[in-house]
Design a protein around this nucleic acid. Structure first.
Length: 501
RNA sequence: GCGGAUGUAGUGUAGUCUGGUUAUCACUCAGGCUUGCCAAGCCUGAAACUCGGGUUCAAAUCCCGACGUCCGCACCA
């Protein structure tokens, strides 16, 4: 698959396409159609039940996309997301002004405005490092979208560049309501906005993107994570400054690589999520440690979650595991002049943060890329059944069976996502369902309605992946779907959880 | 943002160089016939020149601009 094939499939089958496409579209901004929305919500719900519902002190919150300027000054985003850029007047190469200037060992304050920078460039005769031509005037380059609120448009705000900031801003209140227990987790699934210069490759680099993030607040002195259930689980990691991936058990990562247990443990949880829940093949998944310039300055440990995505040309980032220390709460405490410390025994501490961050759009792209399979006579989206847009399809073998099949459909429709189709031949209907990943087709045939038949009041269930059929009583359909479709995180989790079974 | 390429039904395309019939073909989709389990067949139908300006008797075709897409560069705290 290449990007065009993924996009064409997505458009044809109702997954996603560009926003306002009748006006020519908007670069880096996409809409999800009805099939894509079902897939996205299934993914989000599974993510939630896997990462959030598994700890009684982790919760989902839902916050504004608009944040006041002051909060993003404190977080460092205005300084680091708003760079002054100069470009070469001749070869159009772009440079970050602060880098050019500090390369000349000249001091410049971080918030220097364009005229200050122009003066410095003129005074020290700084030219293009590529072709030595004169440089243009400095222009601010904003990766954040700014907004001006109120009738006079006097209050400056931004669309949030990451959902994480909302969590930090809500931490103090939530921590109190949650009765002051650590570790505490706050998750957000929501939109974030970045004014990317060059959004490309479908859903990979977007200007409006969906993040699913869990911020875990903990006491760095005493977070004893019991990792014995995952101690031997091998993790594939590409370490910083290394060319080769290594396969290393969790316990060795902790003992030999000085990775804290809380961090290694969550790598294992994520590894389970991708390989066992999302069914990513082992050789297409890895963690990639970032260091040096690739790592944000506040991250103490930073590993990207990478999946080998053919249409994007190899391993690409779909998420990240960031040990952010106390950077965020400390910055906001300082900027807001609020005390964001918490009491642990007779000590006051600023909790540390472990951030588990997932790009939802990228994940959906990845699923289409990885699971869209062309076989000899058909195409199948082989995603796990609990992710499928539809749980099942109800089909009459022939259209004179519509009465009975429609009755079954109406009974199941309030309980599940089921699709009813009478158009074309039975084979064509199976093919339609295969292509959007519907795991089961339930077919009403003449025996279903034949009182003389031993198969009276039974239907056939046809499996998507191997086309095999079984026969089950009509009254068992709901149970069958429930058993095969409903996502139960406890079967994957290394925690001891009460089982539903 | 720069440079190059490019934009035709829902999807993929022919036609563009060299302006001139009712814009090609396939799949898809809808209706019908047929069909007793895997995209079958037959009939009928719907459906497109990205947008705006210009040149011309005449523009999908040539020119300019906008928007989108792709590749490279740059960017991606």
């Amino acid at each position: 698959m290449n990007t065009d094939e993924v996009i064409s499939f997505a458009k044809r089958r109702g997954f996603f396409w560009q926003t306002a496409e009748i006006y020519g579209g908007l670069s880096g901004i996409y809409d999800y159609g009805h099939i894509g929305t079902l897939l996205k919500r299934n993914f989000e719900n599974i993510w939630l039940s896997f990462f959030v519902n598994i700890n009684e002190n982790y919760y989902l919150i839902d916050c504004s996309n608009i944040l006041p300027e002051r909060s993003l000054i404190s977080s460092g985003h205005t300084a680091h997301f708003n760079d002054m850029i100069v470009s070469c007047s001749k070869c159009h190469a772009h440079f970050r002004a602060d880098q050019l200037i500090s390369d000349k060992k000249i001091e410049v304050s971080e918030g220097a405005d364009s005229s200050t920078i122009d003066e410095i460039i003129k005074k020290y005769k700084i030219v293009c490092t590529v072709c030595k031509s004169p440089l243009s005037m400095a222009k601010p380059f904003n990766l954040m979208f700014d907004l001006y609120l109120g009738p006079e448009k006097s209050d400056k705000a931004y669309l949030r560049p990451e959902t994480a900031q909302d969590v930090y801003l809500n931490f103090a209140r939530e921590f109190n309501i949650l009765r002051k227990k650590l570790p505490a987790g706050l998750a957000i699934i929501g939109k974030a906005y970045r004014n990317e210069i060059s959004p490309r490759q479908g859903l990979y680099r977007l200007r409006e993107l969906i993040q699913a993030e869990l911020q875990i607040f903990f006491n760095p002195d005493s977070w004893d994570v019991d990792y014995k259930n995952v101690a031997d689980r091998p993790l594939t990691i590409l370490f910083y400054n290394s060319d080769e991936t290594e396969c290393i058990p969790v316990k060795n990562l902790i003992e030999e690589h000085a990775i804290p247990s809380f961090y290694a443990y969550h790598l294992a949880i994520i590894d389970i999520f991708y390989k066992e829940v999302l069914k990513i093949p082992d050789d297409k998944f890895r963690f990639h440690e970032k260091g040096g310039d690739e790592k944000a300055f506040y991250n103490r440990i930073h590993m990207d979650i990478e999946v080998d995505i053919e249409s994007l040309g190899g391993f690409r980032e779909v998420g990240g595991v960031h040990y952010r220390g106390d950077y965020d709460l400390t910055s906001h405490a300082k900027g807001s002049m609020q005390d964001l410390s918490v009491s642990v025994g007779d000590k006051k501490i600023i909790p540390h943060v472990l951030e588990l961050s997932f790009g939802v759009d990228r994940t959906l792209w990845m699923l289409l890329d990885l699971f869209y399979k062309k076989e000899e006579e058909r195409t199948i989206l082989k995603i796990p059944g609990y992710l499928s847009p539809y749980n099942a399809a109800i089909l009459p073998l022939q259209n004179d069976l519509n009465g009975e099949s429609e009755k079954i459909f109406r009974r199941l429709n309030p309980l599940f996502r089921v699709f009813y189709d009478t158009g074309g031949s039975i084979g064509r209907r199976y093919a339609r369902m295969d292509e959007i990943g519907t795991p089961f087709c339930i077919t009403v045939d003449y025996e279903t309605v034949d009182k003389q038949s031993s198969n009276y009041n039974t239907v056939t269930v046809r499996y998507r992946d191997d086309k095999k059929q079984i026969r089950i009583p009509t009254t068992d359909i709901a149970d069958f779907i429930r058993k095969n479709i409903v996502f139960n995180p406890s079967i994957f989790m290394p925690y001891t959880l009460p089982s539903d079974e």
